[in-house]
Simulated assay, not measured.
Amino acid sequence: MELIKFLTFLAAVLPVAYGAPTQASSNLHPKILAAMKRDLGLDAEQATARVARDLWASDVIEQLRTTAGSSFAGAWIAEDGTTLNVAVTDEALAAEVSAAGATPAIVANSFSKLEDAKLALDNMDIEQPKTLATDAAETGIAAYYVDVAANKLVIEALAGSVAHAEALAAQVGLVASEFEVKTVDAMPTTLATVLGGDAYLINRASRCSVGFSVTTGFVSAGHCGTAGSTATTSSGASLGSFSASVFPGSADMSYIRTVSGTTLSGYIDGYGSGNLPVSGSTASATGASICRSGSTTGVHCGTVRSLGATVTYAEGRVTGLTQTNVCAEPGDSGGSFYTGAQAQGVTSGGSGNCASGGITYFQPVNEILSSYGLTLVRA
């Protein structure tokens, strides 16, 4: 109960309106502030308040996830950035949600039920058999994820695979009210030869980017290289080699162990506008603000759309990615995703561009750190 009281107090004193001043206005790098102003329409005080509340929301969600147990049905930050919604299936928990500073939503499906259905899809062959009926339209299941705000499993599919997506949902035990099929125009692709932090070459040929420094090297996207591949600077100096890599499958992540004497910095390359500090890796919630840095399009911001998405690339499915509405283009892959100074992940792939907008997925950095036993270098 003491924690609940503290969280209630914290919710009251944190700015609930973007215009409220904060003491942390100097904590966000000017380049982050500029990107959030351009993409989210927030001035410096509003952006600082938004990031502070996003990080507060992550703590509250974890607290309520534990106390609600099997009745927990997900959480999301509203589009205005000021309201944290926490869904539960047991109406008796509404008061506890409110006491923690969040807005309760009573829904029919628990998060675990929908997540189990998604995991069942992960373990199935979802490729659509070719028939005469599908020859005229492009087919493919682009991605699927739990939409906590809709309290449904969402399956994104090309026009020729809508019926197939509906059949897949039925196979994993979902009825019509528990899933939604959304039609998309194109399949996601990995964004090859991308720079998010500093550029590096794989086997002195293809190019990718440093995601975040760790105490023994750096992490990046798994599709950049395989175990044993060499990593060098753009000028050809040896950095080290890929110690581990996963792609496709359960992740799009890699760990490059660097050679002795390599300087590992706890910053993101700002490409002429100063370096962006990394101070931790607290994961952001659905609806939270988030930014991405990449060498092709620079810094762009948006919001988190869903967690734990499964994405279908030409190389195969990848599970556990985070979906955002931040744009990216070829040359941005592997770049750093971050909320404020909190590392979030490395750019995996997506669709669209920064002229018309797009969807970009990233591999959460905390999974990389835990999987390989790594420690993030902090500024």
Rank of each mutant, 00 (worst) to 15 (best):
L3R: 13
T8F: 15
L10I: 08
A20C: 15
A20E: 15
P30A: 10
A34T: 09
R38H: 10
D39H: 03
D39I: 00
L42G: 00
T48P: 03
A49I: 05
A49L: 06
V51H: 03
R53T: 05
D54L: 03
Q63Y: 14
R65W: 05
G74K: 01
A75M: 05
W76P: 00
E79A: 15
A87L: 07
A87R: 04
V88Q: 01
A92D: 14
S98L: 14
A105T: 15
N109I: 06
L121I: 04
N123M: 15
M124L: 15
M124D: 13
E127L: 11
K130Y: 10
L132G: 15
D135I: 14
D135Q: 13
A142N: 04
A149E: 15
V154F: 03
A157I: 04
A159Q: 12
V162F: 08
A169C: 09
A170E: 15
G173V: 04
G173W: 05
A176I: 09
E178L: 07
T190Y: 07
A192H: 13
L201P: 03
G211W: 01
G222Y: 01
H223C: 05
C224P: 01
C224N: 02
A227I: 09
G228H: 06
S235T: 15
S241T: 11
V246Y: 04
Y255T: 05
T258F: 07
V259H: 11
G261F: 10
G261R: 11
L264P: 05
L264E: 09
D269Y: 10
D269C: 10
Y271E: 09
L276G: 03
L276D: 02
P277K: 04
P277S: 09
S279C: 12
S281D: 11
T282D: 08
T286M: 07
I290G: 00
C301H: 02
G302I: 01
V304C: 05
A309M: 05
A309S: 10
A309N: 03
A314G: 14
E315C: 05
G316R: 11
T319V: 12
Q323A: 15
D332M: 07
T339K: 07
T339R: 09
Q342C: 07
Q342M: 09
A343C: 08
T347M: 13
S348A: 12
G349R: 02
G350Y: 01
G352W: 03
C354Y: 02
T360C: 06
F362K: 04
S371F: 00
Y372G: 00
Y372L: 00
T375M: 06
V377C: 09
